[in-house]
């Protein structure tokens, strides 16, 4: 592997090792690529690490995000309306990588845009752009041959969602081809809906730890610094998506265009969340 493409699961492992050494959990932030437009999205993306994001999930816009709530659906619609597509998503990552070599970027979304791009070509381009892993919502282990196995072979992580409906038998299957970290979706539902109680998270973490040594990130329904801190006491990372994306929506003018407040409103929230996460175990 040449220097130019060092990354993939190595960058993710390095980041979680660093967090462990610092004795704290990480903050994983989600934004949709191209939301509200490609330029503003790039500004937000570049500002995330400095504001406290330890890992970045970048949503690949899709017309029919079946597992997402209204906030992330609307982010996809905004991005697509602004002319976003997969090649632009990858160039966004490339632009980010030119200046940040350490923050892992995970592309998150649905299978169809990848399938239409062509799996082999997509993986090649994604790796060259500096992508470290993928989360593809509608690819359960039953469909591993489609994308998961080729992704792992390419040296990228395929990060799996585990859920409250995953029993022990299912978890064995779920962690099989996964790498990087395991994402625990703490409530059965769409993104941005209700959140789990602390007891539920403690119980779920104990169950997951029996199945994997990988870091565990917990997400769904985390909206405030307090909630992020609570999760950060139990998990290796807290994932925040809808709250950040909603902040983008809030910052737009009456025509839905980015304003000079857009990037700063997002980084403001990310700073608060990062403070919560960083001080959680003190």
């Amino acid at each position: 592997m040449s220097d130019a493409i060092i990354g993939g699961k190595d960058r993710i492992a390095k980041r979680f090792a660093k967090l462990k050494a610092e004795g704290r959990a990480g903050l994983v932030t989600f934004i949709t690529a191209g939301d509200p437009d490609p330029e503003a999205s790039f500004e937000i993306l570049k500002a995330l690490p400095e504001a406290g994001a330890d890992v970045i999930e970048l949503g690949m816009p899709f017309t029919d995000p079946m597992a997402d709530g209204p906030a992330i659906q609307e982010a996809s619609i905004r991005a697509l309306a602004a002319g976003m597509h997969m090649r632009k998503t990858l160039s966004l990552v490339r632009g980010f990588r030119d200046q940040d070599h350490d923050t892992p970027i995970i592309l998150m979304g649905y299978y169809n845009p990848i399938y239409i791009y062509g799996v082999a070509e997509f993986l090649e381009d994604a790796r060259n752009a500096g992508v470290d892993g993928l989360i593809v919502v509608d690819l359960p282990p039953e469909e591993d041959a489609e994308l998961c196995v080729p992704t792992v072979e390419k040296g990228l992580s395929f990060i799996r969602l585990t859920t409250p409906t995953s029993d022990d038998k299912r978890l064995t299957k779920l962690v099989q081809n996964t790498s990087g970290f395991v994402y625990y979706v703490s409530v059965a539902g769409v993104t941005g809906a209700g959140s789990a109680t602390n007891d539920q998270i403690v119980e779920a973490m104990a169950r997951l730890r029996r199945h994997t040594d990988l870091p565990i990130a917990v997400g769904f329904g985390i909206k405030s610094a307090e909630q992020a801190a609570e999760v950060a006491r139990q998990a290796d990372a807290a994932v925040v998506g809808s709250a950040i994306v909603s902040k983008i929506a809030e910052s737009l003018d009456e025509n839905g265009k980015a304003t000079d407040k857009t990037a700063s409103m997002v980084t403001g929230l990310v700073r608060e969340l990062a403070d919560g996460v960083r001080n959680a175990r003190k």
Binding site: L139, P140, V185
Partner: peptide
């Protein structure tokens, strides 16, 4: 065909 659904639905 196949089963291209979110993991939450797989057990169902």
């Amino acid at each position: 065909g196949g089963r291209f659904v979110a993991e939450t639905l797989m057990p169902l």
